[in-house]
Design a protein around this nucleic acid. Structure first.
Lengths: 344, 344
DNA sequence: ATGTTACCTGAAAACGCTTTCAATAGAAGC
DNA sequence: GCTTCTATTGAAAGCGTTTTCAGGTAACAT
């Protein structure tokens, strides 16, 4: 690749052509007020004609702010989840002339390492996905450096940082009401990770809805997995090998729900004729399972988009409500893995 | 979030403490030669003690180069694929003090838009994943701007741009040999996208291996899908509803292979007893299918890591072979969806 | 007339680095 | 002893913006 000279058009070129000072060009660029309409027009025309692209680095240096938004994560729930987030955030950032830089921080990351990253890039904002959104150390570093931060589905609120989430409780309730409306009374539940707030809310919704419907919760039908397929397999086994079995199982995510289906198949339990199964997430293969999985879909992309919007507003100095999480609705996807309770 | 003053430590602070000029500090920072050992040590100590973090933007501006590597993509094959790439590239970049910015360019992206992005960010390098790696317009823009570029699994080589790929032909051959060793003679194939080089190579390997083994290819057993689950469903249907059916089907990716399994189930064809199925990719749910899918796993993360290394070398001015693609080995994952050919 | 605003503009000083340039000293070559 | 390297250093000139500051002009109320 031959090194090619790239003719650079600077702000002073534009200024010269437009017949104004660089200050004025800068003002137009940044949409400041107090620029006369005709000069603004002249600048716009000149920069368009010259194909002027402001130098981000010079702007960042002089203006002491960057044009980068960070998408910070630990292990994401899944690749699909992460890239959905990314897509949503990216789209929104593009409109605002910002760019998305991704960075992984695992639990072993030191405060020093994180701070070094933050001071180096001086992010315009940061979006945190679970479980990074609950990392004490990461939050502390962001807070200390004063980086505007938006969090996706955090376990608890953090002062000064807005968050976007789905209503796990209501979503799970929706699932339960679906099962109950199909006549199910004996319902099992597979917990994801008892440490994780999502999981706890879903479990609580399970218990509450059962109670409201006057159904008894059998503790032996509540098993703990760990979100992974394999963990779902053993949880399902524990539930389905009991002498008395539930007619429906609600798993905290699709991977484990898929495991329930597989385990049922191994044990010759027909889904959905003998056992209804519901998941959570709507992973791409949810519809590919046999039977296709009834589940809940999170508006992943939308969540990231809103998080990005929050950051952009904060960057623009707008006042944001950082106390009340923004709660988005989920979609209930009814497929073939749930059916009316078997007779007898 | 209160706006906090961040005390900034600059290169001149370090210079003062170390008792040298800023020029010397800069030299140490950039690992240039012609710095005496004792001064270098003094600088290192001073910057460590002060917790100095060089300002990327100042460096980029003054040095006319950035500390950003772009991961450019169109629609990625899947979220898992994309985030695997990302992980690999990120890890490597981190070591080199670079950061990864992600950007989406779909087919409708204009040359103008792409060039604007490139001149604005002056990327230190770009990694292109399929199918973006084959976008004429994107390649032209990168070439024009002189951005060092590494491509993942491109269809054809592009002068001056190194690439990393797996050997699709050999991988597919490996699958075929597996099937043939199990005694299969009647084998079907589902093409992904005839436009895509990967798919063509896999098909060619299919035909060649059949021919070498003295087996006849039945054209009716070769159907074209489109990588998506649904397309696999109809392709499988076309093959499996024929009066005479193959005993094995090789699908160009896992999604379509999953579809074959589902379709076989619907048609009461037992997998693997009556029909063996192989996929390609090893998506997370490949092991969750029933039966678990025999497939090929690409070293996705590794590919990205190598791509990043290539860019870093190019950035450092090292000489790189940009003509010969780097070819990585795949893993053949034998699970339960393939079995010896049924008797009779 | 005389403040007192609000509106508009440009010169010049940062911003925190890298790079160029000139200078010095010691070593090596002849 | 005189040139010619190589090794080492720092002053100062950028890099392309934003921001500060100082000043203008027009309008409006006193």
């Amino acid at each position: 690749m031959a090194s090619k000279k790239i003719s650079k058009i600077t702000i002073s070129d534009v200024a010269r052509v437009a017949g104004v000072s660089v200050t004025t060009v800068s003002r137009v660029l940044n949409g400041e007020k107090y620029v006369r309409e005709d000069k603004k027009k002249a600048v716009d025309e000149a920069s368009l004609r010259l194909g002027y692209q402001p130098n981000v680095y010079a702007r960042s240096l002089a203006g002491d702010r960057s044009y980068l938004v960070g998408l910070l994560f630990d292990e994401a729930p899944s690749g699909e989840y992460l890239s959905g987030m990314q897509r949503g955030a990216m789209r929104r950032c593009k409109d605002a002339g910002l760019h998305l830089v991704v960075e992984h921080f695992d639990k072993s990351a030191s405060l020093e390492e994180i701070e070094s990253f933050l001071t180096k890039l001086r992010l315009s904002g940061a979006i945190l996905t679970p479980p990074a959104c609950d990392s004490k150390i990461l939050l502390a570093a962001l807070d200390k450096k004063g980086v505007p931060t938006a969090r996706i589905s955090p376990s608890a609120e953090y002062p000064g940082m807005p968050s976007v989430k789905i209503n796990d409780y209501d979503s799970a309730k929706q699932v339960m009401e679906h099962l109950i409306s199909l006549g199910h009374k004996d319902i099992g539940f597979i917990v994801g990770d008892p440490e994780h707030a999502d999981s706890r809310h879903r479990l609580k919704a399970f218990r509450d809805t059962m109670s409201v419907a006057n159904l008894t919760v059998k503790e032996k039908w509540i098993q703990t997995g760990g979100y992974l397929f394999d963990s779902g397999l053993s949880a399902a086994k524990k539930i389905l090998e009991q002498s008395h079995q539930p007619t429906a199982i609600f798993a905290s995510n699709d991977d484990m729900a898929a495991a329930v289906i597989v385990m049922a198949d191994r044990l010759n339990i027909d889904v959905p004729a003998m056992l209804s199964v519901v998941g959570f997430d709507d992973i791409p293969l949810a519809s590919a399972l046999s039977p296709a999985l009834t589940t809940i879909r999170q508006p992943v992309e939308e969540m990231a988009k809103i998080a990005a919007s929050l950051l952009i507003d904060m960057r623009d100095g707008k006042n944001i409500d950082t106390k009340t999480p923004i709660v988005l609705n989920v979609d209930f996807i009814h497929r073939d893995s749930t059916a009316p309770v078997p007779k007898g």
